[in-house]
Design a protein around this nucleic acid. Structure first.
Lengths: 217, 217
DNA sequence: CCGCATCCTCATGGATACTG
DNA sequence: CAGTATCCATGAGGATGCGG
């Protein structure tokens, strides 16, 4: 761990634990489920291997993550503890805050479709779909995530074999803009492809009231 | 700004802006209102002056804060932009997450009573007081914060001259434990002093259901 | 005083190479 | 595959200086 702030303040103490570079991004990866060292490396483009090792040790001693000597072999998997998993809330809040930073698009940044499994739940949080029985797939960059309507909200996950009412294909930039409500389907109609029932797609996107994000750009 | 993560991910982009050391603590200070350089320095024990200057510049160019050439003189005040103020949500979430880190007490850490103006709203968020017309003061370390019951929740702020139904005096450790719901008044009865109507105090504390925090300690 | 700027030292981060 | 080891660049933190 790097130097403590030495302040008896919840924010400062939290940052003492997860404020170091890469720490929250490691947690982001583990929010999608336990992962092996190599999988983490793959999902964290740009990380140096020594830093990844250091941070995993730090997070383990802080009880944010734990090593699982999984099953039959000597394979090590890293997983969030119950407390570590509660970082989902602050991370979701930061993702929502970042919307103005995302509307300029990916530029030369790396992208992994799996990251939508964290971003979309954050953006849809608290919103209830129009049609309570819709299920759609979203294809970005070769990866698919699934949106499923429930009474209480929008469930985002990996495809689970359920029948899809529609499949929307677009790039990450547009998908995030739609989910954040800064783009409407009409705005980008020519840039997305919808196979199946377009109204199923709308039952999710119309759940997100159009926002006038205060953009710094 | 330090090095970018280079990832098209909301969390990574957010951390590109506020992930550097001290940045979120500066925002914490400004959540309590605009502040002068010297006030920030005072509220951020441990910060080096060059770093404070650097970070203020960084946050300004990122449009998280702005300089206000306030009023009559050449006095500079720093204030959050509208977008910067929206960091309240992620900060509150981190404060709530930090509860297990706070229960061990201040130890040798610095403390400023004003920090309660950020911590208490975070801990009371979403909770509705029992008695809708209670107003109490909490005195910690020579500073007083005021809790006021409203229909929609608990308003935390500096004393505004309103008449107080009760005043609770305790140390920061106990106040945070009570607000987080990991301590009950009965647990610490001998360590806190209540002047006035104890039931007014209860109308806030009983709004917070006792939690079994998953503590890593 | 306030609001920085400069200098210096040391810890940390990053890239790459290497090993069990 | 899962890390270590090494080397270098950068950033943090403390002290001090300085103009207004």
């Amino acid at each position: 761990m790097s130097r403590d702030y030495g302040q008896y303040c919840g924010l400062a103490r939290a940052l003492d634990v997860v404020g170091d570079r890469w720490n929250l991004l490691i947690v982001r990866q583990l929010l999608m489920g336990p992962a092996r060292y190599g999988e983490l490396r793959e999902g964290l483009p740009g990380v140096a291997t020594n830093l990844l090792t250091d941070r995993l040790r730090d997070l383990e001693t802080a009880h944010v993550i734990e090593r699982q000597l999984s099953g039959d072999s000597n394979a090590i998997a890293y997983a969030l503890t119950e407390w570590g998993a509660q970082l989902r809330e602050p991370i979701h809040a930061l993702v929502r805050w970042s919307t103005p930073l995302m509307i300029r698009g990916p530029e030369s940044d790396e992208f992994r479709p799996e990251w939508l499994l964290v971003a979309l739940p954050a953006l849809f949080e608290g919103r209830v779909p129009i049609n309570e029985s819709a299920t759609v797939g979203i294809v970005v960059d070769g990866g698919m995530v699934q949106l499923r309507a429930t009474k209480s909200g929008i469930d985002v996950g990996k495809p689970d074999g359920r029948e899809l009412d529609a499949v929307l294909s677009a790039n990450a930039h547009l998908v995030l803009g739609l989910a954040a409500g800064v783009l409407s389907l009409a705005d980008v109609a020519t840039l997305v492809r919808i196979d199946g029932d377009e109204s199923a797609v709308r039952s999710f996107l119309d759940a997100a009231p159009r926002q006038n994000e205060t953009s710094p750009l």
